[in-house]
Design a protein around this nucleic acid. Sequence first.
DNA 1: TTGCAATACTTGTATATACAAGTTATACTA
DNA 2: TAGTATAACTTGTATATACAAGTATTGCAA
Lengths: 239, 239
Amino acid sequence: MQKKYLTIYDDLVKKIQTNVWSESTLLPSENELTMMYETSRETIRKALNLLSQNGYIHKIRGKGSVVIDRNKFDFPVSGISSFKELAESLELNSETVVERLDYVKKDHTVRSKLGVSGRDQVWQVDRIRKIDVEKVILDKDYFNEKHVPMPAKEVCEDSIYDYVERELGLTIGFAKKEIVVEEPTDEDRELLDLTGFTNVVVIKSLVYLADTSLFQYTESRHRPDKFRFVDFARRVKNG
Amino acid sequence: MQKKYLTIYDDLVKKIQTNVWSESTLLPSENELTMMYETSRETIRKALNLLSQNGYIHKIRGKGSVVIDRNKFDFPVSGISSFKELAESLELNSETVVERLDYVKKDHTVRSKLGVSGRDQVWQVDRIRKIDVEKVILDKDYFNEKHVPMPAKEVCEDSIYDYVERELGLTIGFAKKEIVVEEPTDEDRELLDLTGFTNVVVIKSLVYLADTSLFQYTESRHRPDKFRFVDFARRVKNG
DNA sequence: TTGCAATACTTGTATATACAAGTTATACTA
DNA sequence: TAGTATAACTTGTATATACAAGTATTGCAA
């Protein structure tokens, strides 16, 4: 059985995107939507709160839900998505090259970042992301072998998240991310098209499974001119 | 009257921060919390969902709410907060210098970004943010005079958001943000301590009031080594 | 016409109940 | 002992009701 509030949310998103309700106009009221979808008001409110969190609408007490122009939320580093999902949704002319795939040495610093102890293995994959033939992103992924066994190279060329979620049946829960600007390493200069650039933007992520076990550390190293981060934020009063 | 689920949320945050429940242990169950706070389960769930959204806990169906180590969510560009609020919460040794405060010319490009028409005025304030005597951030703020009249210079040295929210009684609603990396302008080089740096990180924001009217455009220009953005993200399935 | 009060809307909060779905511990059976 | 079914938990979804609080409209009175 489908979750009712999610199907309503999806339907409302589609209708907003196809301009059934256009920017800065009001959605039907919660009571009207309750009747339209033949459900309860609380279910409608769950769907509307999701729309609000994701920047589709803004709710005003006493008035209604105003449609927001979410124009071009292009490159959402916000949220957890794989490069493949991203490239597909943006219809980019992209390509992935696996540069390296093997186990890391016992003294590697990522072992402490991943919190692995003793003889547990950590494997590493370096991938170059091309957009329109230019090498613009270097992804360095480190996985805890205990949770995610090292796959074949072909899997890395496709989507590791597909492998983790579909093949291994694991559920990804949440991630902590950090964005900083660094000077390029020798490796960056060797593997990316960096001529003329003196910085790289680095997104460092710790990714956790739904059972809160840490399984992945990633550094996504971007050429600065191809980097863009878009965010939607609500004001919270700290009283 | 206080909102019950918010006071419970605040109380739970405090208890997590003071290690009443430590990392990766389970919170009391929803039913137990319901009794502890003498309220209904739905009210407890509202508070817990807030904790989850803000990265304090992770809920697992059938098990409970696991406490997450939210270690050093330092420089939250995520969310809308003023530099003053930020500096205070981080206890930084900071200072603000107002470099410029006047009306912008009729042909200025920000007029279209703010969507002002005809003879409406737009005013501008340029502020340098010092951290430990170093000039590391240049904030360029543009306001629609119709919503926010130009204040005295002293207000800009303190906090414009205080002025907007307290003095004018306006309510800030939401913001769209974009982070990009650019080459420094002549102005950046003149006003910031940029020797040795060839890039600046720019956070461009459009800020809206609670009634969805656009009132502010901001460019916050950071020296790359002092820039850090931390984020918490949950995995959403797009099935 | 203008101003104001009443009214009919809107969304927000709090509560209660029922059942579904996932996890863990218990106790029983082979 | 090992395995399995059961029961007793956990969180998730859906519904209903009541009232609070903010907004817009209506209509009446000066």
